[in-house]
Design a protein around this nucleic acid. Structure first.
Lengths: 151, 151
DNA sequence: ATCAAATGTCTTAGCGGCTAAGATGTTTGG
DNA sequence: CCAAACATCTTAGCCGCTAAGACATTTGAT
């Protein structure tokens, strides 16, 4: 670790930064293909990655948008058929945002391709190497999450 | 490769997606801390990662913004002291956007922390493992770039 | 039970950034 | 030398965002 040449760190930093920029671009492309704005796609992604349906307010918190903006986001997503509003029967003030299951396919298209890319990449590694990589990804993701939260 | 259990792919997909969402969030935080919009920070990032100074038009191409929007972006970045306009002496129609070196420090703060995180993560791996990880990052970045370009 | 305060979402006004189109200034080629 | 191409800037109009407050529902204190 202390013996790590600075160039290694340089290269890793470069990869991270490149990935970072590519990711932002990728999301923009995905959104475009889905006929959504980047904001709308981001919120849909949040709703899809959550365990259960999110409330409008939770989406506002997670996305950093105002509640008013989220109303507009859900309006557009609902009109486009990606989600639907369901009033929470236990607390009728809340609006649950359910992702329409059928339309997960449309939306899956770009992610299918991303998955194919991943398979192609992983094909270049044997089981032991995959374990190392997964350990790295796990650690990196956790560390990055902490970093993002208190940045 | 054919023997790869589906769960591995699932987990890797999940990591990618999580990284992806975290990255978008991270950029938003960085921008906020720098007093910039996400758009402005994205363009500044482009300018910083380029070899030499970019022209306004090139920034428009790379960012996907209109030339008019880029004029506004550069105005704001210049007013904030992050870049300055320099007319290209060889073609005075062009405007070169030079990143102000002194202010790389301000801007470096969040990236410094990200770098620290990276060092911490890499510390958990020995040299052989780092080589595997770097091979993965290299391949993944290249593949992802191709994917983003023709998505 | 009742009602004030808290909570969750929606509505509205105003602002700012984006696009598209065209203006301005510069270069290129015939 | 001038017309066409090129690079950037300007402007008008649109759309999404924020902030503030309206509305509906729930909670908690009395």
């Amino acid at each position: 670790m202390f013996g790590m040449e600075p160039e290694v760190l340089e290269r890793f930093t470069w990869y991270m930064r490149e990935q970072s920029a590519l990711t932002v671009m990728f999301h923009a492309r995905v959104a475009e293909q889905m006929g959504l704005s980047a904001t709308d796609e981001k919120c849909l992604d949040l709703a899809m990655r959550a365990d259960g349906p999110l409330t409008a307010g939770r989406i506002a918190d997670l996305s950093g948008l105002s509640t008013g903006a989220v109303t507009g986001v859900i309006d557009r997503l609902e009109r486009a058929g990606y989600v639907r509003r369901v009033r929470d029967p236990h607390d009728r003030r809340k609006v649950l945002v359910e992702v329409t299951p059928g339309d997960l396919d449309k939306l899956g298209a770009p992610f299918e391709k991303a998955r194919d890319s991943l398979v192609e990449v992983l094909g270049h590694f044997d089981d032991d190497e995959l374990q190392v990589i997964e350990r790295y990804l796990k650690l990196q993701t956790e560390t990055f999450r902490r970093r993002v939260i208190d940045t």
